[in-house]
């Protein structure tokens, strides 16, 4: 299925969800949940938090389907909801938990992985270590394959800022790789 067909399918499903069609809601969930979960997991860096927020995201999709204005793609709209809820979660938990997680990840996990795996794995480990802001933009552009315009809608920043952020993210990644290989 090409991207345009998927977008159209998402739109049609959401129209039915607005009319409280639970089958359409389930179909929309199946179509989008994996990438929404991936996005949350990468953003929150915690499986448990990603699971909880993931449930909350789709509950909000059901409740607020009628508010979708059709200005963006449905998936972009869902990502926007996911991002807001994830940021709230990060604000709530912040400092203590995220710091704890980052430390654990760096000390026990990443270093070992870096030493054991080849170039591609090095890159993945480095990606885990760049700032959430840079990781997020790389994920949205390269993994979720969203356009600059769509990313700008989710992050609520101008399109040109998205483009420069992609370049800064790549530069930060390179820097991490150099640090890790020293």
């Amino acid at each position: 299925m090409d991207k345009e067909t998927i977008r159209e399918q998402e739109r049609q499903l959401l129209e039915r969800v607005i009319k409280k069609d639970k089958n359409a809601f389930e179909a929309l969930y199946k179509l989008t949940s994996q990438s929404v979960y991936f996005y949350l997991y990468r953003l929150l860096q915690s499986k448990e938090a990603a699971e909880d927020i993931h449930v909350e995201v789709y509950t909000q999709v059901w409740k607020n389907a009628g508010k979708f204005q059709g200005k963006s793609r449905v998936k972009t709209w869902i990502f926007g909801i996911a991002r807001n809820l994830a940021l709230n979660e990060i604000r709530r938990e912040t400092i203590r938990k995220t710091q704890e997680l980052n430390e654990t990840f760096r000390d026990d996990h990443t270093e070992n992985r870096v030493n054991q795996f080849a170039q591609k794995q090095h890159l993945q480990a480095a990606m885990d270590q760049v700032s959430a802001k840079h990781r997020e933009v790389l994920d949205l552009v390269f993994y979720h394959e969203l356009s600059y315009q769509e990313v700008s809608m989710i992050l609520e920043i101008p399109e040109n800022t998205v483009k420069t952020r992609v370049y800064y993210a790549k530069a930060a990644l390179k820097e991490k790789l150099i640090e890790m290989e020293v």
Binding site: Q34, Y37, E51, K120, L123, M127, L138, F142, Y143
Partner: peptide, 17 residues
């Protein structure tokens, strides 16, 4: 490389429960 790396990474990602 970034693109390929992310594509590979997603293969190991947990799915929603």
């Amino acid at each position: 490389q970034i693109k390929e790396s992310l594509d590979d990474l997603s293969k190991d990602m947990p799915s929603p429960p």
